[in-house]
Nucleic acid binder design. Structure first.
Length: 174
DNA sequence: TCAATGATTTTG
DNA sequence: AAAATCATTGAT
């Protein structure tokens, strides 16, 4: 079973896509062959008004990717050493993205990109057209937990207290 | 608890 | 043009 997610999956609002990504398979074709991971933790960043979202202060060279049509990756460096992997959602000029925070075998957004060998070259990569990374249908999770997002205290209220982090309970993992 | 470490963004 | 700011991690 390996059904690739269609482009329409990504064109919805980020608050719909973020929880929908849980249980889906992230497929990456590296030099060592094809590897698959179950997505277990995501965070939603909802564009223009969300002060925790990089795109809230307007379009810049870095955030330009988020303003494009959904279904592509937004990859960037944080704290000088960790790549963050985000999936852009919604339509053009509606800057939204989902941060992939955890996979079944890897916890932590910085560690998972290192494990995947993700780097700058994946920025702007299409998950619909690419032959080295894409998403597939997975198992429907029976239970989804939510919490405030992590590491965005600088955004202030009301954003710090919004429950836009979605994750699966430990016993749900494979 | 805090140093490492660098691209991006702004004088917090 | 310089300085602060981070969607973090891991070692002390």
């Amino acid at each position: 079973m390996s059904r690739k997610l269609p482009k329409s999956f990504y064109l919805r609002d980020v608050l719909k896509v973020a929880p929908a990504l849980l249980g889906k398979k992230l497929v990456i074709a590296g030099e060592t062959g094809i590897r698959k991971y179950i997505i277990t933790e995501t965070e939603a960043y909802q564009g223009a008004f969300d002060l925790a979202c990089h795109a809230s202060k307007g379009k810049t060279a870095r955030t330009e990717v988020m303003f494009r049509e959904g279904g592509i990756l937004y990859v960037y460096l944080i704290y000088g050493m960790y790549w963050m992997m985000n999936i852009v959602t919604s339509v053009e000029n509606d800057p939204q993205a989902v941060l992939i925070r955890g996979l079944d075998k890897v916890k932590g957004p910085g560690r998972l990109t290192r494990q995947l060998e993700l780097d700058r070259s994946f920025n702007g990569e299409s998950l619909v057209d690419s032959s080295r990374i894409w998403l597939e249908e997975g198992t429907e999770p029976s239970k989804i937990l939510t919490s405030p997002r992590i590491g965005i205290d600088y955004a202030g209220e009301p954003w710090v207290s919004k429950h836009w982090r979605f994750y699966l309970p430990d016993e749900e993992l494979f």
